[in-house]
Structures are given as C-alpha cells and as structure tokens.
Write a protein that binds this DNA or RNA. Structure first.
Lengths: 245, 245
DNA sequence: GTCGTAAAAGTCAGACTGACTATAAGTGAA
DNA sequence: TTCACTTATAGTCAGTCTGACTTTTACGAC
C-alpha cells in the first residue's frame, strides 16, 4: 500500500461546476438534469463526479469554472454564479479546496454537449453515489436554485431568447416541484416586469397562439458577483420589517 | 526593483473574516463597526486589512477563519458564515485566493478584543482605503448582512443571552439604517416566534421595565453551512409565486 | 359552424403590512 | 404622595398581496 498520502499536504485549489438544465424523461415530463463526468484517475477512479479542474495560475475563478466546463462537457452556461467553497480536511485524501460554481443552460443549448461513456446526463433526483462530497454539493446547489428562483430571475437561464409564459411557468413548476396557477403566475410575472411581450405569437399550436416574451434586463441575469456590487440592485422581493416612515 | 513577482505563480489560499459588531460613536449613537489589522509585511505593508491568515493544511475553512480571527483580534464570534471566495488574478501581486467569512459578535463580547496600534475598530461607513480588494469585500459583507437580517435571525448575533425587544429593534434599525415602528416590530417578532420571553424584566431603567427575551432555536443561528444541509430549514419568509393547491 | 383547448382577464375572501391610536406600568421630580 | 414623563404593550384600520376560482377570448381541428 501507498502509506504516505496524508491530509497534511499544502492545500490545492480546484474549481467545479454544477450545471442544471431541463430535459424530458422517458414519459415526456420535464425534469431537472445535470451532466456528470467519470473520473479517470485516483482517487475515486471510475466514479461519477462534477466537471471541474485545478485552478490555473492565470485564470480568474469564474473563467476557470466556465473553461473547465466547456472543455469537459462542451457546455456554455447562460447563468453562472459562485456557490460555495468546500474545504473540509477529510473530503479528499489530498487536501483539496473546491470552489464550486452553479450554472443554468437552456435545453436548446445542450445540443453541443459532449456525450460519451464518460460524460452523461443524470436527472437531479437520480444522481448516483459520486466521488468526494459531490452529492452534498449537488444537494446544496439544488437548494440554492430552488431558493433563488423565488426572488430572482434565474429561471430565465433555462430558456431561450423568447418564450411563452407557459414555458416560463413550466420552469418554475419543475424546479419548485409543484403546479402553479396560470392566472396568478401571469399576474406575478407582469407585476414584477420580469419579462416583456415581443408582440409576436408562437405558431403551430393546437389552440390559441400564446404571446412570446423576452426578458427586460438580461443584465440582471448574469454575474451577481460581488465584483459587480455597485451595479447590483437589491432583491425585488426583499421585505421590510415593521418599517416606519 | 524586484522584477520577478508575476501573477502566474501557483495559487495560494488565505482565509479572512469580516466581523461586525455594534458600538456607540462619540455622540452615543450605535453604529456598525469592524476590526481591521495593519499589514506588517509587503505587499501593502502598513495599510489596514481584514484579519486573516493562510489556510493551514490540517484545518477546515471555518476553523481557519475562527482561529486566525482569534489570534489576530482576540474575538470569538457568535455567528460565522462563509461569504465568498475572491480570486481575481490581479487582486494581489501574488496569486492569492481569499476565502472570506463574515461574522457577528455582541458588543458585550468585544471586551476581550485586542486593541493596539495595529488592531483597531472602524465604523463601517468610515473604513479607510484598505489593502488588496478588501474595501469591495466589506461592501459585499455589508450587503449580505443587510439582506440576511430581513429574512433570518442573524440579528441575534449582535446580542447577548437575553435582551429586550427594544435592543433587538435597535440592531435592526442600525443595520437597516431606518427607524422601525415598535408595535409592528413586536408583532413581527412574535409571529415569527424568533424569540421567547424569559419572564424576567430588565431593571434600572427610568421607566416601565421591559421584558427580557431569549432566542428559541439558537441552533438556527449558527452554521448555515451546506455541510449541515439536512438540518437546515427553509427560510421563514420564502414566498410562493402564484402557488396552487 | 361547432367543439375543444389553452390564453388571458377578472373576481373575491383572507392574510399581511405600515401607520396610527390607546392604555399600562414603571421612575424621578415636585 | 402625586404628577409628569417615558417606554412597553395592545389594539385599530385601510391598503396591498395572495391563492383559489370563474369568465371570456381566440385560435385549430373537425
């Protein structure tokens, strides 16, 4: 046995990404899915893991997340945000601190995805046992997605340039795991002016053609990094507590 | 000149902490304050900076934040949570990725604080020009504190074991920078059952003695780490969007 | 034309919020 | 002892938001 691998080595930095999309299952139901890659070296060789790579010396963190994601899965996310830095001493035989990003991509943009024996899509509720603490990481990313969809516009990260309200609602329904009332959803979306109508209508439906929408401020969707703090507005739904005056 | 220091060295990991407390200014007004330490070596020698230290090989991230905070400032925070990992290539002449924590401590617990020529308290709105990107980091920590106080119980991190509703309200007022209606504040706090009355009353006031409260679930206050995900409840104020059934 | 379907608009009662008023319970001063 | 003062505590009320529900509209298929 190789006895020397202790956890007291100088910490190494890696950047990984949890990237979600929506895909239909066998029954045609839309479900949350994410790509995993098979580890090709020890530790945990052969197990599935999040896409990622060691941090390069001349690369910013977010750029590192994007580039390692692109090179291992072929995906370029529409939304990308830092999730958390995982650094428990015992999370790997080596001392690895993983700075994890989470990302969203539209179903229509996953066509370019690499799919092979070593890169595959999994439904979020059918993730196998992964390498390291990656199962915990995915759980946390899911929690963050579900929380954030309620007060921000991240849902748009799943959709293309234009979309119908029914499509947008479906995103919410899949992520939150419950049905939403179409009327109330429309009211919410319109009052929050998250999106605006394009004036065009979707054709080819079996019924009245739904209006197409686009989002107003695509800026708001990307890069909520503290690095852009000055330009970030406060959350739309933030409430006051017993405010006076 | 030393010409060789490029930013392409292998990344180094540091852990720093923004720790807030409430202290009275000269006029007796409570204000947000935080301790800074003077850098004793290059780069940015002599400038003020956040307390921190390189990550030790055998220390978890949060433990590293706590221990470096204790050794440089003498403070042991009541609330400690990861803030963000800062890793821009150009944020330091060396390549340093800083995993930053943010913390709260009660005014009554800052007595043990080291104060010297090289460790001093600053009001949050009077922070001088700091080393590295630490000004940006503090801005972000402030934003996070103000956001989080609205939907969580972090405010309790500023207070001792027991407190009056007026004291709790003052924390909110200072952090949010606006006055709150006492009656509405009481209603909010009671309906959210954030705290419970102890049955005791504060003495020595010039008026009717206010009841003392303590918090219900001190568990909820500490460690919102994803590492404890299973036990974390969802946010109390999280709202649904046009939910049906 | 009629039917079926989903879009889009409207209704309504209950909960919540912010502003405000009223009462109660102490201390210090007269 | 009594009064004045301050703050705790309780209550009121109108406006807004929310979830459930109903109605109307506009299209394709037949």
């Amino acid at each position: 046995m190789n006895a020397g691998v202790t956890s007291t080595r100088t910490p190494v930095l890696a950047v990984s990404t949890v990237i979600f999309t929506l895909r239909p299952d066998a029954a045609g139901e839309m479900r949350l899915a994410l790509p995993l890659v098979r580890r090709i070296r020890a530790p945990h060789q052969g197990k599935w893991a999040l896409p990622g790579a060691p941090l390069k010396a001349n690369e910013d963190l977010q750029a590192s997340a994007a580039s390692s994601l692109l090179s291992t899965t072929g995906l370029e996310p529409r939304y990308l945000e830092q999730l958390y830095a995982f650094g428990q001493v015992d999370r790997s035989p080596d001392r690895v601190v993983s700075i994890v990003y989470w990302a969203l991509i539209g179903s229509d943009e996953t066509a370019s995805a690499i799919e092979s024996e070593n890169v595959q899509w999994f439904f979020a509720d059918e993730v196998p046992e992964l390498a390291f603490d990656h199962n915990v990481i995915i759980e946390y990313a899911l929690w963050r997605l579900r929380s954030k969809i309620e007060y921000s516009r991240v849902a748009l990260g799943f959709l293309g340039e234009t979309f119908t309200l029914a499509q947008l609602r479906e995103v919410y329904e899949v992520v939150l795991g419950k049905r939403l009332d179409p009327g109330n959803f429309r009211r919410m979306v319109e009052s929050a002016s998250i999106v605006e109508p394009t004036g065009e209508y979707l054709e080819g439906t079996r019924h009245r053609p739904p209006q197409l929408y686009r989002y107003n401020a695509s800026k708001d969707l990307t890069d909520p990094d503290p690095l852009t703090l000055g330009t970030t507005s406060t959350r739309p739904n933030a409430r006051d507590l017993g405010a006076a005056s």
